[in-house]
Design a protein around this nucleic acid. Sequence first.
DNA 1: GTGGTCTAGACCACT
DNA 2: GTGGTCTAGACCACG
Lengths: 134, 134, 134, 134
Amino acid sequence: MLHVWLHIDPRSSVPMYQQVVEGVKEAVARGVLNPGDKLPSVRELAMELTINHNTVAKAYQELEREHVIEVIRGRGTFIATEPDIPDLSVRVRELKEEMVRWIVEAHHLHLSDEELVELFQTVLREWREGRETL
Amino acid sequence: MLHVWLHIDPRSSVPMYQQVVEGVKEAVARGVLNPGDKLPSVRELAMELTINHNTVAKAYQELEREHVIEVIRGRGTFIATEPDIPDLSVRVRELKEEMVRWIVEAHHLHLSDEELVELFQTVLREWREGRETL
Amino acid sequence: MLHVWLHIDPRSSVPMYQQVVEGVKEAVARGVLNPGDKLPSVRELAMELTINHNTVAKAYQELEREHVIEVIRGRGTFIATEPDIPDLSVRVRELKEEMVRWIVEAHHLHLSDEELVELFQTVLREWREGRETL
Amino acid sequence: MLHVWLHIDPRSSVPMYQQVVEGVKEAVARGVLNPGDKLPSVRELAMELTINHNTVAKAYQELEREHVIEVIRGRGTFIATEPDIPDLSVRVRELKEEMVRWIVEAHHLHLSDEELVELFQTVLREWREGRETL
DNA sequence: GTGGTCTAGACCACT
DNA sequence: GTGGTCTAGACCACG
């Protein structure tokens, strides 16, 4: 069985292990992976993505740290059932900072505020639809 | 004259040269810097921020590549007047990809789509007000 | 009869066999299990906890090594009556090392020495009360 | 210059990278390392401890995650100036759980509650004195 | 020079 | 079988 919900670009400047992290989080957000679902083993996924197992292991450790997955020793790795967010306020602040970066970038692309809001809503809508389709 | 529109945090995980890039772009977006304005020389700015001049030079190169500034040999560096963005579609696409990543992240914080839009509009409004004040 | 004095969390990072060890030791310390009491067989307990019997067997071996239980061939497993601890000084030293590690950890949470002692006495008092209740 | 504040036992069952983490934290708690102090580089420390640089790197990353140290790219690693504890309540609960384990262990070593409290206070006092001496 | 990432291949503890 | 750790040696971005 192939895990089509994950694609890695080894030439990207974003680290491969982080692409795995984001890929899993996106799959969860899209409902492709659901609480309790078993993830492929470290070595299985590494084989399939043709990357080293250490890279996958690092990604899984990061995902566990963020409470996205749960590791049961000797049994495997699973999507977490109870999502825990201890430092929500910190992360919301980070999200807001990233939005400011959008606003700045949009200005340099000669997008008006209205166009930017519209762009955001379009992306959000498309994402929502893509998620329902899957 | 001090360039209060730029603050660098050497502790941040985002590279210092990129902080300079973003700082200049934000100053332009806020209207603190306007087309034709002269930027401090590489060495001047490096001195003021107490960072290496190579770092500032790298930031200026990046800003020139993005058509935010124009370097006129023997005269200095200026905020660009040219409004054309050659690779606009590429950069809009990158912006959209950033937004998707952001949406995924927000999903894991259990924020609803409505809260996301509201959050964005709040940030946008605050930013707009901050810009008028400056 | 159900052995309500033992609860295992397969998600925990602490090995399941060790959770069994600690669970039995805690039951003894609380007076839920007393010298001479018969423990369930390896397979019985494994069934009840829905874990592998190898895991329970490993726990029983460890408990026997620590002189907490005694295995009498053909009769079963019992809480030990023998109060001698051959390697007592070693184990006290280990306990002290754990305490040092704990103190270092607490230091990083900015707890004062007085708060530490108070915290410990609170936990001890609560535990003593919990033990009487059971 | 030798960093006598760190000793690693490669034969211990606790991972070497974690021994480094604990060693640095202890040095900070003891006042051997102070905010702003520069840590040896990843490769320097690895050489000195005769372990792989990846192991030290992993330890440093963990320490940064816990806000014990700060990494300034291209410059080095430093003891953090502003200690941040986002999830204090969680960690205090963990500390309390470890204390329960002491109590259980003490019972099996035939230590009375009074002897246990005394043991804890002795360890704490010794640690405090050791810290002043250094 | 710094830390960060990745590979290849090994060994270990746990189930 | 699972994930976790470690080594050896490589390459990269950053300052």
